[in-house]
Write a protein that binds this DNA or RNA. Sequence first.
DNA 1: AAGTGGTCTAGACCACGGC
DNA 2: CCGTGGTCTAGACCACTTC
Lengths: 241, 241
Amino acid sequence: MPVAISPERMPAYKRIQETILKRIETGQLRPGEPVCSERELARIHGVSLMTARHALAGLEREGRVERRRGAGTFVAMPKVHFNKLMSYTEQMAGRNLAISSKVLSLKIVQDEPEVALRLSLPATARLLKLERIREAGNEPFALETCYLSAAEFAGLHRDSVKRGSLFSLLERDFGLEIAHADEEIDATQPDPAMVRLLAIPRDVPLLRIRQVIYSKQGKPSIYVLGLYRADRHIVHIRRFR
Amino acid sequence: MPVAISPERMPAYKRIQETILKRIETGQLRPGEPVCSERELARIHGVSLMTARHALAGLEREGRVERRRGAGTFVAMPKVHFNKLMSYTEQMAGRNLAISSKVLSLKIVQDEPEVALRLSLPATARLLKLERIREAGNEPFALETCYLSAAEFAGLHRDSVKRGSLFSLLERDFGLEIAHADEEIDATQPDPAMVRLLAIPRDVPLLRIRQVIYSKQGKPSIYVLGLYRADRHIVHIRRFR
DNA sequence: AAGTGGTCTAGACCACGGC
DNA sequence: CCGTGGTCTAGACCACTTC
């Protein structure tokens, strides 16, 4: 969670946003209920109308609030998070499946130049390669292979990876700020090694998802190759016209 | 394309946006080049600074323009359209493949209640069902089955469907305004009928994409079940943290 | 130093919605 | 009718970038 900056040097419009967000998050303000009007906010916070407007307009852009001319401003209905980048751990948290993962290997490789290129690194760069089996209820569901710059993420050890989510580890220990990921999805027939690893019949196709995960600075930081048994996984996305 | 409202009753900030957009689209203003500053715009259009600001802020939200404090406002780099909803025809337009489609059948069905439910129609509603083979270079690539409310889209005939994109047909002849689509992606083994229809080997998996396409009014209007040979299709999406 | 965008004021009129 | 959000003015100071 981002630490709140001292409210001293925070712009007025942002202060107003935070007080409203706090009231939404604590449940004092429920979805559909009216938020203070622009004029009320201006009076309460001792700012001009334009500033109060700016605050509400920002919240509307973020989808937290809905504005209806002539009627007022209302807390938006709870967000459905579309196209949200989540780790396997996070995705499974919503279900009541006992999810675990098994580290197959964590090593440094230098012979996968095509991956290095995806990460905008020189073809000869040293890469951390992490292979994991994802399981739910002790049944293997997927194989995920992550690649990271060995130079940038030096000090990543098998022990730290074994417990908990890689995302939160990288965010906490390496200050990585994840912004977005570009994904390519197709499907393949499992090869014999995959059939054995995932303990699946030969005729279950695998969803293959290649992710390049970018930091807020726009740097490609992680490359993930995931193979998911297609009879147990569905990808949900929303597209816009 | 939305018809331009008479500029008489158009807000000043919107007029300013349009003049800038026109200069971008005609190539007078190229990506990376500076747009007039707030102060210039205010002077040129005879409006206050806040109004000029409002115009630029809107363009920035839409990703048309990039603002850098202390430096200026610049035309944004050409948009990469992520998570953009496009018909098969539109997707293929970018490639230099001769794409065509063959209508297998267009009929009215009443025995697929699960589809009716996806369209928020009563289970017994009559549905238009359109089955098409998509081909590129005379090679079959995909099977797409579209469902629409027979009541709402009465008058859709085989002849009109045979030429051109279904999307543009519905947008033009039925005033359908498409807003977004929710997709589910997984993969399956082709059954014998699919092997024959697509003329593929048995071991090529199929990407299965189920789309519910919504109108701007929020009504689910089209349901599409697509089966794409996975060795010839990749789905691209962007996810956000 | 000059110019830019970011924040802000203290007002104004309009169009729209609900009562 | 009154209150709401939507647009707009004519200024102001600040932080920042570029030169």
